[in-house]
Design a protein around this nucleic acid. Structure first.
Lengths: 351, 351
DNA sequence: CTGAAAGCGCTTACAG
DNA sequence: CTGAAAGCGCTTACAG
């Protein structure tokens, strides 16, 4: 029997079982009680015909597809992959499936995904937004149910976040407690931080808080832009070394960035942690397996995602309820990469 | 206007534009030429009403959803994430979206996904199978269009593969050329290789080929089972060291496994490549950023995935055509981790 | 507990 | 180039 044209329908099953299509539907959905006898006959007919329900038809009828969307910038970074994994697992546990779209840092693609949500291919959307402000969320009429994840300043949409400013403070304080005084920041510069650029801004602001408490300057020459990948971390670290400034610690805004930085420090013959302390953010699997193992900010990715799915489920069920924001707690995991005090890196005299 | 109940339909658009629903459909799909004048009116009406087509309805009508499925064991390993990324990108370029399911090495979940394909939620399926033989593919009536990726011995389904036996040969030969004589194999043992367990089997067989050519033994004590993750690589390497056997090289069957192994070798004070050579497989991003950088078997992930999507598209278009298998070429990328000759690791005398 | 009717929102023939 | 009719395969009221 060819696929998919001649697939059996509920009508075929109904005929074979000698009941109405509605009864077959009742058996399949389990919504209404069906007599033992009828149920057995219907189930037998389904098996004989190898019946599978057509979910497009069901979706058309009751407006739900059982599919949720997950949009993120790039699936290959370790953190994204970990979160995507958790989304797929948590969705699976609830009988949902996940459509994944990469936004590749292009707002257009983020928009496309929201648009697709509106075509009823998906019931709702978990969005790790491209931009921190000015999200597509603000620009679409008839927005589908959306939950934002990440450090977004967005109050018109449900969201899950960690307190990144506090995390930044904790991280910088830890480095200073270990003896660091000049901390390279791989993740953003103070100048590109507008009031609304929350993600970079919050972590950076936390670092500045801690430096301030210790009466230390936030040296602009220690801050550098970085692409959020291993290669990006390496590039940024090379750029920093080329600046020929002194430093004794590196705070990378993701573990992947930290991995690239570690590589370049090794390349330059700088030892971690003897010369320079290094720490990351996210606590992905590889953070425990770099050499030396990487100190990082940790939070439960599964909890993070579960909260997002809970919010999304509530939102799908009730579009009118007030917006909610859920904070996931975080902590610092100390590993060898920050066992101070560091000797520090002093560049050859120059400039 | 609440969502999603009162969304405008083609009928609403048609009324407003003063045409029939069919004409709106013609404008939306672009299938039939529509007069400039009508098209403009219809488009204006769509914008005014903020119309989006309901894809469940379209899917029900023409049997295609524009969604493909991608099933793989685990999204978090670097290789899987890279492949998933390529699938999403390549699908996006063709106007398709991707539903991802993790099979978690459970055949049941693989089956679920195939089942779901049959419910018309997806048009076809790219499957990185859990088991190498006895795949779900053999057990399902009315199989949807499926393309297998990976080193599978499967001839009833379209598939994309690399010549893993040749790759294994190349890898072992490279290690021997660099002076290695006792190569630890993190990836499988000869004993668990049945004729059909192709993936492990092929790589391992290639290694055995190369050893044989060099008149070397395939020492069973140098082979160890391993979970395909960083942590799994670390565990396996620890187990190997606990065996207290001599070795001078490590061939890990994925780069992630190699990363775990590198970590443990560092921990034990063994230097790479001075004492022990290490190489991986897949050439994921982090392979170039470990310390030292990792020699590996490389192939173009984008090509790999593009071939799979091409096969799937052909299969969706023509279910009756003969099965095809596409090979993607590979090569060895030499980095510092295998710059021999290695001194070798000799365990303290024991046993 | 089961059935007959109607419709979810599209698109495929078939006419004009 | 455009329209009226019918139907894709389900499920929601409504009867019995």
């Amino acid at each position: 029997m060819p696929y998919p044209s001649s697939r059996p329908t509920m009508r075929d099953v109904a005929e074979r079982a000698g009941v109405s299509p509605k009864t077959v539907s009742n058996v399949v959905t389990g919504a209404v009680t069906v007599s033992e006898n009828t149920r057995t006959r219907v189930e037998a007919a389904m098996v004989e015909l190898d019946f599978v329900p057509n979910l497009s038809a069901r979706g058309l009828r009751n407006g739900r597809t059982g599919v949720i969307g997950f949009a993120l910038p790039d699936l290959t970074t370790a953190f994204s992959a970990s979160i995507a994994h958790s989304v797929v697992e948590a969705a699976h546990a609830r009988g949902l499936v996940v459509q994944i779209e990469e936004t590749a840092f292009e707002p257009t693609r983020e928009y496309d995904l929201v648009y697709r949500a509106r075509t009823h291919q998906i019931d709702g959307l978990i969005l790790n937004p491209v931009r921190l402000q000015d999200s597509v969320v603000d620009h679409v009429r008839h927005l589908p149910p959306v939950v934002l994840i990440g450090e977004v300043e967005q109050h018109s949409t449900d969201r899950v976040f960690i307190d990144s400013r506090q995390a930044g403070r904790t991280a910088a304080q830890h480095l200073m407690d270990q003896g660091a005084r000049r901390i390279v920041i791989l993740g953003g510069t103070a100048t590109d931080m507008s009031a609304k650029q929350a993600a970079l801004g919050q972590r950076l602001q936390g670092v500045l808080d801690a430096l301030g408490s210790a009466q230390l300057d936030a040296a602009p020459e220690l801050q550098v832009e970085v692409r959020w990948s291993i290669a990006g971390g390496a590039e940024a670290m090379r750029e920093m070394l080329a600046r020929e400034v002194a430093f004794d610690a590196v705070f990378a805004f993701t573990d992947s960035i930290a991995m690239g930085a570690l590589h370049v420090l090794h390349e330059y013959g700088l030892r971690v942690p003897e010369d320079v302390l290094v720490m990351g953010f996210d606590n992905v699997e590889h953070a425990a397996y770099t050499w030396p193992p990487l100190t990082t900010i940790s939070f439960d990715h599964q909890d993070y995602v579960t909260a997002a799915l809970d919010l999304l489920a509530s939102r799908v069920a009730d579009r009118g309820s007030p917006t909610r924001a859920v904070e996931i707690s975080h902590s610092l995991v100390a590993r060898r990469s920050t066992e101070g005090p560091p000797r520090g890196h002093t560049p050859p005299a120059s400039l």
